[in-house]
């Protein structure tokens, strides 16, 4: 009885917390709800601030399909292709490096790791021009390579795999070596399966970042046929008169894949973000 009373007291004391969190949640969710509602309205209704669903979805969709020389689906396809290829390469290269740095570590490798961490301080905007020259000289503009090359090896990902390799027992490696397993097979057969959850977190975060990338693709993927989804929606909204209904439908298209990833793999996403802080 007293326990119950105590509990309701605690809940009553938490009322301000509930109110505050509810307000914050509503503010967080509302713009996204509004994007979806606006995607079903015509531009005038959006401008009037209509927050209910309209019946213009089909019309907006038709406009969207004709926008930027009808590149909606190719942009969508490009974004999927680039993001998936990016994820595969990044995971492979960075996990290999993280594994090497942690489980084969010696003075030399630790020093090299320290140097690699310095790359975190190098802003994308500072390397943009020289990298553009490099990619252009290699004849890779508008190709998937131009998109993925700068993002394959990132200090953040290497660090994440390195930190998480600490729980991989060296004894197992010794045992495998005695059994005559070559080094690369120890990695593929023993390390990779054990670290599945880290790979999942790293994959989610890499995919999200690749999907959302904007400045670098804008620099190297200038051809409309090579453009990504964020570039596509930025294009449809940059004119003097913006069709807001259509634009918001485009934004919705651009957000669906990341939303799905967010809702299905939220735990991995959160782990991926905080991955290297352990």
């Amino acid at each position: 009885m007293t326990k119950k009373k105590n509990k309701s007291m605690i809940q009553r004391r938490l009322i301000p917390t509930y109110i505050f969190l509810t307000i914050c949640s509503l503010i967080s969710v509302f713009p996204l709800y509004w994007m979806i509602a606006a995607a079903t309205n015509e531009s005038i209704a959006v401008a009037r601030g209509s927050i209910t669903f309209g019946n213009q979805l089909a019309v907006n969709f038709e406009h969207l399909q004709n926008a930027v020389q009808g590149t909606l689906w190719s942009s969508m396809g490009n974004s999927f292709l680039y993001s998936i290829v990016q994820t595969i390469f990044t995971l492979f290269v960075c996990s290999l490096a993280g594994y090497g740095f942690e489980l084969y570590h010696d003075k030399g490798k630790d020093k090299l790791f320290g140097i690699i961490l310095l790359a975190m301080m190098v802003p994308a905007v500072a390397t943009m021009v020289p990298l553009y020259a490099l990619i252009s000289k290699a004849g890779l503009l508008n190709s998937v390579w131009a998109f993925i090359l700068p993002g394959i090896a990132t200090p953040f990902m290497i660090m994440m795999f390195r930190q998480n390799s600490r729980n991989f027992p060296p004894d197992i490696m010794e045992a495998a070596r005695i059994d005559g397993l070559p080094e690369w097979r120890i990695f593929f057969k023993m390390y990779v399966p054990v670290q599945k959850s880290i790979y999942a977190a790293a994959a989610v975060i890499t995919f999200m970042n690749a999907w959302n990338a904007y400045m670098w693709p804008k620099v190297v993927m200038s051809d409309n046929r090579a453009q990504t989804m964020p570039m596509f929606i930025a294009n449809i909204s940059s004119g003097y008169t913006v069709d807001y209904g259509m634009t918001m439908l485009g934004v919705l298209f651009c957000s669906i894949p990341t939303m799905i990833v967010f809702f299905v793999l939220q735990k991995q996403f959160a782990e991926g973000i905080t991955g290297s802080v352990k």
Partner: peptide, 23 residues
């Protein structure tokens, strides 16, 4: 609550810029 407050991270930087631009 956590999911709601974390949700904006699911939008790309261009997307939310355009949402705020139209709002």
């Amino acid at each position: 609550f956590r999911t709601c407050i974390f949700l904006p991270c699911a939008t790309s930087l261009v997307s939310y810029s355009l949402i705020f631009k139209s709002m």
